[in-house]
C-alpha cells in the first residue's frame, strides 16, 4: 500500500497536470451531487418551478447568512443552542455510559429485572412529555436541557449494554486463561470490545439531541436557533428562516463528523465492508 502511495507521489511530481486532474475528479465524485442540487435550486425560481418568496435561492440565503453571521445574531443563537445540546448530551453520556457498563457487565440480574421497565419508559414519545417537563421544571433552561438529556440517554444506555453483551465470549475465556483479574478483563476486553456499539449509541443520541433542541426551542423559548426559525417564519422573513434551517443541518453534520473522527482516533483501524 505504501509502495502504491509512493508511486502516486512520483507520478504527481512528474506530471502536475494529471495530479490536479485526479484531485478535480475526486472532488466531483464526492461533492458533485451537492453542486448539481444547488445549481438546480438556484435556477428553479427563474424557471417558475418554485415560489422564490417561500423558497429563496441559495444565493439569497447565503447573502442573509453572511449578514446574520456578521451582525452577530447567528453566532449568539448558535452559542445558546449548542450550549443546551452540549449540557443535555454531556449529562446523558455521563449518566448512561457508566450505567450501561454496570448493567451490561456486572449486574446482569439487575439488568434483566429493570430492562422491561427501561424499554417501556424509553418508548414514551418525548414530545408528549414536554408538558410534564414544563410543569415540573418551568420554561427556563432546565426543562430544555432535561428533555435533551432524557432523549439522549436511551441510545447510549441500550447500545452500551448490547455492546458489552455482544463481546465474543471466547475472548473473555481467553483472558481468563491468561490469569487476568475481573477488573482487567472488564477494561481491557469488555469495554474495548463494546466501543463500536457505544459510539453508534452516541451518534444516535447526537441526532436526537438536535431534534429535541429545535422542538424545545419552538415550544417555549426566547432564544436559540429553533426560536430564530419560528420567529422568522412568523414575521415572514423567509431567507432568515432558511438560514436557520441550513445552520441546524450543518451543525448536526459537524457534530456527527466530530464523533466519527473521535471514534476513528480511539478505535483505530476497521475492516471495510464491500458489498
Amino acid at each position: 500500500m505504501e509502495a502504491a502511495a509512493n508511486a502516486g507521489r512520483k507520478n504527481a511530481s512528474l506530471n502536475p497536470v494529471r495530479f490536479l486532474a485526479r484531485i478535480g475528479l475526486k472532488f466531483i465524485h464526492i461533492f458533485g451531487a451537492i453542486v448539481v442540487f444547488l445549481i438546480v435550486w438556484e435556477l428553479a425560481p427563474g424557471l417558475g418551478i418554485v415560489n422564490p418568496v417561500i423558497i429563496p435561492t441559495p444565493s439569497v440565503i447565503f447573502d442573509k447568512f453572511t449578514e446574520l453571521a456578521l451582525n452577530g445574531v447567528l453566532a449568539e443563537n448558535i452559542f445558546i443552542s449548542l450550549r443546551r445540546v452540549a449540557i443535555g448530551f454531556g449529562i446523558a453520556i455521563a449518566v448512561a455510559l457508566p450505567m450501561g457498563f454496570l448493567l451490561g457487565g456486572w449486574f446482569k440480574t439487575a439488568e434483566t429485572a429493570v430492562n422491561p421497565l427501561l424499554q417501556v419508559v424509553s418508548q414514551a414519545n418525548p414530545f408528549t412529555l414536554f408538558p410534564v417537563f414544563i410543569t415540573l421544571l418551568g420554561i427556563g433552561e432546565l426543562s430544555k436541557i432535561s428533555i435533551i438529556f432524557w432523549v439522549c440517554q436511551w441510545p447510549v444506555l441500550f447500545n452500551t449494554v448490547t455492546g458489552i453483551r455482544n463481546v465474543d465470549p471466547t475472548l473473555v475465556k481467553m483472558s481468563r486463561s491468561l490469569g487476568m483479574s475481573k477488573f482487567q478483563m472488564f477494561y481491557k476486553v469488555l469495554l474495548r470490545g463494546a466501543l463500536p456499539s457505544v459510539f453508534t449509541g452516541i451518534r444516535m443520541s447526537a441526532v436526537f439531541a438536535f431534534f429535541m433542541l429545535i422542538g424545545a426551542e419552538m415550544i417555549g423559548a426566547s432564544s436559540g436557533l429553533g426560536y430564530m426559525i419560528l420567529q422568522a417564519q412568523a414575521t415572514f422573513q423567509m431567507p432568515k428562516m432558511w438560514v436557520g434551517i441550513v445552520t441546524v443541518a450543518l451543525l448536526g453534520m459537524a457534530v456527527n463528523l466530530a464523533i466519527l473522527y473521535l471514534e476513528k482516533r480511539i478505535s483505530g483501524r476497521k475492516e471495510e465492508i464491500a458489498i
Binding site: 465474543d168 471466547t170 475472548l171 475465556k173 481467553m174 476486553v189 474495548r192 470490545g193 466501543l195 478505535s267 483505530g268
Partner: peptide, 8 residues
C-alpha cells in the same frame, strides 16, 4: 478453536 484474537 475460534482463535480468540482481539479484533482491535
Amino acid at each position: 478453536q475460534q482463535y480468540a484474537l482481539l479484533p482491535w
